[in-house]
Computed example of a mutant assay.
Amino acid sequence: MSVIDTTDDKFDEDVIQAEGTIVVDFWAEWCGPCKQVSPHLEALAKEKDGDIKIVKINVDENPMTSGRFGVRGLPTLMIFNGGKVAATHLGAMSKSRIEEWISESA
């Protein structure tokens, strides 16, 4: 499975009401560190298909959701379990560090 793009209108359906562990990437087109993280998330989405779901939301195009979850910097990664935030990380990480963070937090 590849990374899923969501919107303010679809966020609850794609994340809050969805089953399993979901990693949400709050990002923006102009954000350099967001561009560093993106290929790692794409790779993890394929490698962990069935175990985790990775969802991206562009904060410039979808300000309601980022405001709802208090996103203040980019990239912000959040892990959701059962519709609730289980963990939050601000800033870029290597692929191996993202995997460790998911394992520790999910």
Rank of each mutant, 00 (worst) to 15 (best):
V59Q: 00
V59P: 01
D49S: 15
A86T: 10
G70N: 14
I54T: 00
P75A: 10
V85L: 08
N62H: 04
I102Y: 03
K48M: 15
E99W: 02
K46A: 13
T65F: 07
D51R: 14
T7Q: 11
P63Y: 02
G82R: 11
L90G: 06
E19H: 09
S66Q: 09
L41M: 14
E99F: 01
M1S: 13
D49F: 09
G83Q: 07
P63S: 07
H40K: 06
T88A: 02
S103P: 06
K95G: 05
S38E: 14
N81H: 14
S105G: 10
G50F: 13
F26M: 02
G83H: 07
T65S: 13
E13H: 08
Q36C: 05
G32A: 13
W101C: 08
M78D: 04
S94D: 01
G70F: 13
E13A: 15
E47I: 12
R97V: 09
K53L: 05
T76M: 07
Q17Y: 05
W101Q: 07
D14F: 06
D25L: 01
E100N: 11
S96V: 04
I4H: 04
N81L: 13
R68S: 15
G32P: 07
Q36T: 09
T76I: 06
D9V: 05
V15W: 00
M78C: 11
L41C: 08
W27F: 10
I102P: 00
D25W: 04
T76F: 11
E13S: 14
R68T: 12
A106S: 15
N81I: 12
I52M: 13
L41Y: 10
T76R: 04
I4D: 02
L41P: 01
E100K: 13
M64C: 06
I79P: 03
D25G: 03
E104D: 14
K56T: 04
P75Q: 11
E13V: 14
E100R: 10
D5V: 08
E61Q: 12
E47A: 15
D51F: 13
P75S: 09
S103H: 14
I102G: 02
G73N: 14
I79V: 15
I52D: 02
F11L: 05
V23A: 05
A18N: 02
D14Y: 10
G82C: 09
A28I: 03
G83K: 07
S66N: 12
R97Y: 09
S2A: 14
L90D: 04
